[in-house]
Design a protein around this nucleic acid. Structure first.
Length: 512
DNA sequence: GGCGCACTATTTTTT
DNA sequence: ATAGTGCGCC
């Protein structure tokens, strides 16, 4: 047993227990800002030091970005690289696995993974009479079936789709997981080799697991590997693409003997912000988790503001940005303010503006454009384009920019200053007519947004908003009233000459 | 095959 | 609002 006196300076007691735990599967419940990656990395390194020859550690992430970041953290420790820690996404690992054992697989030997355009072409061949939307829906359904319902009998449209895909020598992304599952289930020789290689498996963001990934993981573990999973069920926001947060609840049943630990010291958010986000997430029925303990003991500031319109909302954001940036830039020229040591100026990189819908971005971009504030929009480029070389503008690197992204895209990031715009009924939580509505997941999404903030959080709304060509009058988001008044600082509404010209008011028939 | 007009649907997103 | 599809016409 490692004694507490061994604890490194950069690790707390709960983290140390999680890092050093041995002899059973382990689920680490790690809320926002509790040192999730830090703890996982330490634990991997510790296990890597104990590896015998030919044994491997497999650390699985969901995104390439997460895999890259994990690799970078680990490669600081050379011995780990030598010991053979494999850090990969589920999909990328399965691709390598299938290539390695291709002679055992019932697949075209030179198969490729289809890019989305190839899937579109294929769908057009199969269903020429369907509209574009219907084809898109069908392909989406197929992907969902493959990641969630793959044990059910094969639907007819899926059979023809698979046949044509294979005839072209292609696999889709979901096939990477399913074909790997197939191979492991059917060929004991392959399974044996895998069993002898991967003794320790680590999975990050466990709340994002889909049933196909879970099935794969179960095979590894049934073959004798020891599993460490880490994540936060309160940050599960991807159920719409097949992720199932139930695997968090069934962990002990799925992996007998498992130990569950919690990290609850928060090193990210100022006390007011941590309290506020805690009060919001506490209203969910699922996943009660005791409040996180603040370790950053500044108060922080939670600002609430209601603008008359979405345009005014954007102008307010711009105005606040100018105030935040303060003396260090051109924006201070007219104010003549001197930087205040109690309120150090923020730089553009410190700031993110979050929204529920991409369509909210336009008004924001216009206001930012008018003011000349530099910004970047993230999370809207397809993954396969990322590999293409970007224009190498040497200034790009140093350029300070405000970030704009959806609440979804913000997961895993942190910023000193966070704006969440559109904090209105029907928008947060999003309730669009004709679309399914999951109040608990929407609350988790809002929680993810709130918990990105380290020092300042602005929860902003517009009384009147244009969406899809219609004007709506919306009440505040019900989530706002879950935060106690003591924590909120209300900003005065900026006085402006009332605008008379609103286009025809229509019924709010878009919201369900 | 290409142009232009009318119609329509509209989340969140990774691999 | 607006982007993108689908259709008719040359």
């Amino acid at each position: 047993m490692p004694s507490l006196s061994e604890i490194p300076h950069d690790v707390n007691e709960a983290q140390w227990r999680a890092i050093t735990h041995q002899g059973s599967h382990l689920l680490i419940v790690a809320g926002p800002g509790t040192g999730k990656t830090h703890t996982l990395t330490h634990r991997i390194i510790r296990f890597a030091e104990q590896l015998k020859n030919s044994q491997r550690i497999l650390a699985i992430t969901f995104t390439n970005k997460a895999a890259r970041e994990m690799s970078e953290r680990l490669s600081g420790c050379l011995s780990v690289v030598n010991a053979g820690v494999m850090v990969d996404t589920f999909h990328s690992f399965c691709l390598k696995f299938l290539r390695q054992f291709i002679r055992h697989a019932n697949l075209p030997v030179d198969f490729r993974v289809a890019i989305p355009e190839e899937i579109e072409v294929l769908a057009k061949e199969l269903w020429p009479d369907k509209s574009v939307k219907e084809r898109k829906d069908t392909v989406e359904q197929i992907s969902r079936w493959k990641s969630t319902s793959f044990e059910q009998p094969l639907p007819e449209n899926l059979r023809v789709y698979n046949e044509l895909l294979r005839a072209k020598g292609l696999l889709d992304f979901d096939d990477l997981l399913l074909e790997s599952l197939n191979l492991l289930t059917k060929i004991s020789q392959v399974r044996e080799q895998i069993r002898n290689t991967y003794r320790f498996i680590f999975v990050d963001e466990y709340q994002d697991m889909n049933p196909a990934q879970h099935a794969l993981l179960k095979i590894f573990v049934d073959d004798g590997a020891l599993l460490t999973a880490i994540g936060d069920p309160n940050q599960a926001i991807y159920s719409f693409r097949g992720a199932d947060v139930r695997f968090f609840e069934s962990f002990s049943a799925d992996f007998p003997g498992a130990v569950i630990m919690e990290l609850s010291e928060n090193y990210r958010s100022a006390t007011n912000l941590l309290k506020a986000s805690g009060q919001v997430i506490a209203k969910n029925k699922r996943f009660f988790i005791p409040a996180l303990n603040p370790k950053i003991l500044t108060e922080g500031r939670l600002t609430i503001y209601e603008a008359p319109t979405d345009k005014a909302e954007a102008e307010y954001v711009v105005h606040q940005l100018e105030k935040l940036i303060g003396g260090t830039s051109m924006f201070s020229i007219d104010s003549g303010r001197v930087a205040n040591y109690e309120e150090p100026n923020a730089s553009f990189n410190d700031i993110v503006i979050l929204y529920r819908l991409n369509s909210q971005r336009r008004v924001l971009e216009e206001a930012l454009g008018r003011s000349g504030i530099p910004y970047r929009v993230s999370g809207d480029k397809p993954f396969y384009q990322i590999v293409l070389p970007l224009k190498d503008d040497p200034h790009e690197e140093n350029n300070q920019k405000v970030s704009l992204m959806t609440l979804h895209a913000a997961k895993g990031l942190e910023f000193p200053v966070v704006f969440i715009i559109g904090c209105e009924e029907n928008l947060i939580p999003l309730n669009l007519k004709g679309f399914s509505f999951d109040a608990e997941e929407e609350r988790r999404l809002f929680y993810v947004g709130m918990t990105r903030a380290k020092e300042k959080l602005y929860l902003i709304r517009a009384r009147r908003r244009y969406l899809y060509g219609q004007s709506y009058e919306n009440l505040p988001s019900p989530f706002l009233s879950d935060i106690e008044e003591e924590l909120k600082a209300y900003e005065e509404i900026q006085k402006k000459a009332p605008k008379k010209k609103f286009p025809q008011e229509k019924q709010m028939d878009l919201f369900g």
